[in-house]
């Protein structure tokens, strides 16, 4: 028998509701609102209750893509990252660090946002870092 629950935070609004996500036999299930959570106290809105649904969407990207003349084609991580790194460094060297811009994300974790701005500032040397928070 394989059933487990993992405590995590709703991915949607900034209210920060707490939920257990159940995994039954490897499949992600409907959230269980966490009763001991001081912000949400065992309640969720409809978005929280449906937070697991988009995860299993058929539209999920599962492979890196590169654009070719005839649209996107799947590629390997190695090739995709190589292209990203080569092109970004090339632009920086040719046009200076401020020819690049980086968007962090209000949907990503603190750690990811920290790393993204560190990448922009420490590796590429630009403060062109922002996200859609104002929006």
């Amino acid at each position: 028998m394989d059933y487990r629950t993992v405590l995590t935070t709703c991915p949607y609004c900034g209210s920060g509701c707490g939920m257990y996500l159940p995994v039954l036999n490897g499949k992600l299930g409907e959230p269980i609102p966490a009763k001991t959570h001081p912000l949400s106290q065992g309640r969720l809105c409809i978005k929280g209750w449906s937070a697991h649904e988009h995860v299993a969407s058929h539209d999920r990207l599962t492979k890196p893509l590169v654009k070719t003349g005839s649209g996107f084609k799947e590629t390997t991580w190695d090739e995709a990252l190589d292209l990203v790194v080569t092109r970004l460094l090339e632009l920086r060297d040719r046009h200076g660090p401020d020819s690049l811009a980086f968007l962090v994300s209000a949907k990503c974790t603190n750690e990811e946002n920290y790393l993204q701005q560190k990448l922009a500032r420490a590796v590429f040397g630009t403060n062109n870092v922002d996200h859609c928070a104002r929006l």
């Binding site: 028998m1 059933y3 487990r4 629950t5 405590l7 269980i32 966490a34 009763k35």
Partner: peptide
Amino acid sequence: VGGVLGLSSEHGHVGPHLFS
């Protein structure tokens, strides 16, 4: 039984848990 379903308290948070 394959497990016992109950509640588990970890780090002050309580949720459903299968004790296997």
